[in-house]
């Protein structure tokens, strides 16, 4: 067996996948060939090093963010007035709202919101997965500077995902608007100071949305806004005292 025969089998050999004679033959070659032995040693070190990489823990707040996004999605899906029911599923502490008598406050806030609102910018640029990813099955090895992508095709989900950013941004904007309306209903229960804090913080978050020049940052800004609105609506005293967790 030559080096050229052995090299392609080293990975399988090292991973214990060569049975019987096939393994013995490789092992026999490694005993006599220093070059292949070095390659095998390197690969084994690499393999063990990768297996030993530390696990990375997600941020503690990730679950809360996911719940918030799910809430947004549900709000968007459900038609009014059922969206409120959907929201309450995700924010179980949501107080019962006294619906009557608050129309005036709601109108004021909605007017304020409209005056700040610009048409939601839908990005025209819907990215598509790079051709490299779409045509990626078993491309033969190229030069080192342009390595083969070499993975199976992923276009099933990517095509679906590609259309999503613009849709998502629009959804966020609608959700935030609805939450502002909802906030207006609970607003009379706040102190003057809390109202001032709320207004200042919402203005700040709104400005961040306006500042965002790209789809992803804009979505992040919307999410921050929505998180804050949700906190405020469930009478999170921290949110109303300090402007919320950022």
């Amino acid at each position: 067996m030559t080096c050229d025969d052995v090299r392609p089998r080293l990975t399988a050999y090292l991973d214990g996948e060569l049975e019987g004679d096939r393994g013995t033959v490789v092992r026999g070659h490694l005993r006599t060939c220093a070059a292949c032995r070095q390659v095998a040693t390197d690969e084994a070190t690499l393999r063990d090093g990768m297996r030993a990489l530390p696990t990375v823990d997600p941020p503690a707040a990730m679950w809360a963010s996911i719940q918030a996004q799910l809430a947004i999605a549900e709000v968007e899906e459900s038609k009014r007035p059922s969206w409120r029911r959907a929201l309450s599923r995700w924010t179980p502490m949501l107080p019962r709202f006294a619906v009557g008598g608050l129309a005036a406050a709601a109108a004021v806030t909605v007017l304020w919101w409209r005056s700040h609102r610009e048409p939601v910018q839908i990005s025209q640029v819907v990215d598509h997965p790079s051709p490299e990813i779409q045509a990626s099955r078993d491309i033969p090895t190229a030069t080192p500077s342009s390595p083969p992508f070499g993975a199976p095709s992923f276009d099933d989900v990517t095509a679906d995902l590609a259309a999503e950013p613009a849709r998502t941004t629009a959804t966020y904007a609608e959700t935030a608007t609805e939450l502002v309306t909802l906030a207006a209903e609970v607003r009379p229960g706040w102190t003057d100071e809390q109202r001032a804090t709320f207004d200042a913080r919402v203005a700040e978050l709104r400005a961040a949305v306006d500042r965002a020049t790209d789809e992803r940052p804009r979505q992040r800004a919307w999410r921050a806004m929505i998180r804050y609105l949700q906190q405020a609506i469930v009478r999170d005293d921290v949110a109303l005292a300090s402007g919320g967790v950022h």
């Binding site: 390197d42 690499l46 083969p148």
Partner: peptide
């Protein structure tokens, strides 16, 4: 997970490790 054949998976792993060895 990758929706490919097991053989493809193995050969990709081999190539990927070789590339890592080159880099390291």
């Amino acid at each position: 997970i990758l929706e490919c054949r097991v053989g493809t998976c193995k050969s990709q792993l081999h190539k990927a490790r070789a590339r890592m060895r080159d880099l390291l």
